[in-house]
Nucleic acid binder design. Sequence first.
RNA 1: GGGCGCAUAGCUCAGUGGUAGAGCGUUGCAUUCACAUUGCAAAGGUCGAAGGUUCGAUACCUUCUGCGCCCACCA
Length: 912
Amino acid sequence: MSMATKNTEKISPSPSLIKRGSARPYDPSLTEEKIYKAWERAKAFQPAVKKPRGKKSFSIVIPPPNVTGSLHMGHALNASMQDALIRYHRMKGDDTVWIPGMDHAGIATQNVVEKQLKKEGLTRHDLGREKFIERVWQWKGQSGTTISKQLRRVGSSCDWSRERFTMDKEYVRAVQEAFIHYAKKGLIYRGDRIVNWCPRCASSISDLEVKHEERDGLIYNLIYPLVDGSGSVVVATTRPETMLGDTAVAVYPSDGRYQELVGKKIKLPLTNREIPIVADHAVDKTFGTGAVKVTPAHDQTDWEIGERQKLQVINVIGEDGKMTQAVGLEYVGLPTSEAREKVLQKLQELQLLKGEPEKIRHNVSLCDRCSTVIQPLVSKQWFVKMGPLAKPAIIVAEKDLINFEPQRWKKVYLDWLTGVKDWCVSRQLWWGHQLPVWYCQTGRMTNDDKRMIKTNGHVVFSSVKPKKCLDCGGTDFIQDPDVLDTWFSSALWPFAVFGWPEMTDDLARFYPTSVLATARDIMALWVTRMVFSGLEFTDKNKYLPAKQYGKKNLSQQIPFKNVIIHPTVLNLKGQRMSKSLGTGIDPIDLINQYGADAVRFGLLIQTQQDQQALRFDENAVRVGRNFANKLWNIGKYIGSAKKAKTAPTLFDNWILQRLETVSEEVTVALDEFRFGDATRMLHAFIWDEFADWYIEVSKVPGLTSANVAKDVFKKCLVLLHPFMPFVTEELWKDFGDKKGMLINTAWPKFAKSRKKEIKEIKYFQAIVGELRSIRNLLGIPNGTKPVILLQTERNLKPLWPAIAQLSNFSEVVEKENGAKWVSLPATYCSKIALTTETLSTLPLKERLITMESDTKKAQEEIIKLEQRLIQMGDKAPVNVVQQQRELLVAKKLDLEKQQNGITALDTLIKRI
RNA sequence: GGGCGCAUAGCUCAGUGGUAGAGCGUUGCAUUCACAUUGCAAAGGUCGAAGGUUCGAUACCUUCUGCGCCCACCA
């Protein structure tokens, strides 16, 4: 490597790109990475070491993405919102922190690694648990940084020094602590329950991890003979093989057809068993024959009937999806599909099938992760009792101690918690938090571990292997092989990230958090569980049972004050963005193409209140990119102007007042989480008012002050920074205070505007607009700059140079100084006129047609107004009538001026 | 089956009991100008349908239609 190359590499940090006379347009790829690094170097994302006195804290915990995940548009939107809030509050001077991190995502991650193994022809069982977990950690190390890198690309100002992972040592401790606490409190139990079993994952999965799909199937009618030979009952099923596990036939209690049969017994075909006919309300008497076979072991509803009717439970399908020993030699070991064929064949032989099977479209339950058909079955699982936990979580929402945005989500939250069933928390996976449950192999237990508690059946709850059994002194323990549901650990996220169960400084300082921003699909799965976990575990950070659910107490324990449920990002056709469907867009591709500022801005500007879906339009990102470029060019232009302190002009005062208003509106919008409004307002103000009017006027000498232009621009950069952090930070090098970076600059305070100048400027703008229209209408070539005669209601003489410049006339005059003037159609001006000389060179004939059609429209409007006034009579409020009358007068005047203009032109044409 | 949301310009969406708005797209004009990732101008809408309330409804109420989402045990 030559010395020269080395030297060039050392040239950095550099002055701003503007000063280096950068090529246009603005190129985000030259700035974004450098700026992000500069922020990190400056530790700009970290709060002060100690909490500053008298400062409010503002904290957000990121919804932890799956460790194997990569950024999708939903994440990008999620991050853009959170970062906007974080940057805003940081600038406001709040004690601000944004905690990043990742979720180990039990099933999802395990599946990914299992798929890899499959390619090598291996299963996890070939490796064994330890090796397999090692392998998952390896994969985590490999892919786990992807999403955090991507979050950095977006510009997320997370405090990476506080990054957390749900499988970190400290976090594991929190999870164990929580489980053991529930156990001590008697909220944990183990039982045989019907669960959704995924034969492929070989694990139980929660209701929320099950998806439903409509499929075609066959429904068979089976004939069940009565024991006493007095007849038979016909039952329908889509899964004939489960009949081997039937332990009853159920009918609706008041169903006349079967009244006499209730209490009688059925001789269950293909088995030696006799099963009762029971009456249960769960039966729909209008469906099929009104009699239903009951298989408590393999159907959710049947399980519930079984509970009520005290029925026997016979497991006929095993965890491997094959028939169990319980069915007899003929079927044992058969996959359900084969067992079905065999059962049908047998029944056919016995003439116990009634008619041909019918086609039916029905819902099939599938595993959300691997789309395998769910097999409901009974197995031993650990449960958390939900009743006592849900109650306070319901109360805090009912008392509005949590603010949902949009509000209607409160109902969804409450509905879910109100109907919640006990939570099956055990999963038969290897990747996750292994249950802190130990089974004493000898029978006695000791209590030398503080956290060890005795339960029935020689079970010890402990984070470490117990040393001795309390009762029998046994030292032989086996840990339960199951792991906890991933959501069990995510539920602790808002406080576990701060070091709970230790009473850390961070926990005291940042908990409860300020805002939780998430997509709506994990409302039930996650938000509700964080709330009840928070209420349970953060009572003065001792996580003891909160005895009183008083308002004061609870509000300190709710993990967040605001829940923002943001829209799902869809594509333009309204389809879900999905990699597998090929309907997804990679945000990183967009960032590469347009820059992070553009992507953030483009996403946020498309959001609005109460929206449930966002149809992502790449055009919005282009708007963002163009806007960044516009800022860049404004910067170049204003930066080159000479500094000259002058007394504020009319235009100065106007733009300053508008700025105050916009500052206030943007601030309020941010406080109310209206990101779309905030970005739209800034875009409109900076582009349509500041650039198109103020800066254009500034090209006329003496009408504006350079220092005001700079001040306004500077404030614009501050206001825009939460949304477009990079380009604003880059420009700050030229416009900001020499001392610090924009990220640390104070959010502007605003004063009420007086609005006097605003009316004046509006009038000015209307006149310029009218003149520009006339230019276009008459087809005056751009190169031609005629003199124009103008008479206006207000005295605008000082602004004439500006009017001339902006509407592209050489000069504005007010008196008919000898030349021959022809009046033109006008609305805002009392009189607009051009010389015959100018007009005679123009294609007036064609233009007249357009003008005449315009007058027709005006006439129609007048008629409409007149009719409306008649209709109103004296029934409408006086002020409204008055307003309409004034409107009518104005319209009539406009029409008259237009008609005069047309007549004048017409005369002119005839003369020429 | 229960619940929720949406329907306004070609597209994505604001909005209001009394002139229908933006961005993108389209059309025309403009390139020695900070910016063509630009500027100026313009065209474009029975505000999903039907009733009701009202002097007046795109807006408020009811029903319907279409689309989307969530929850649920239909064999």
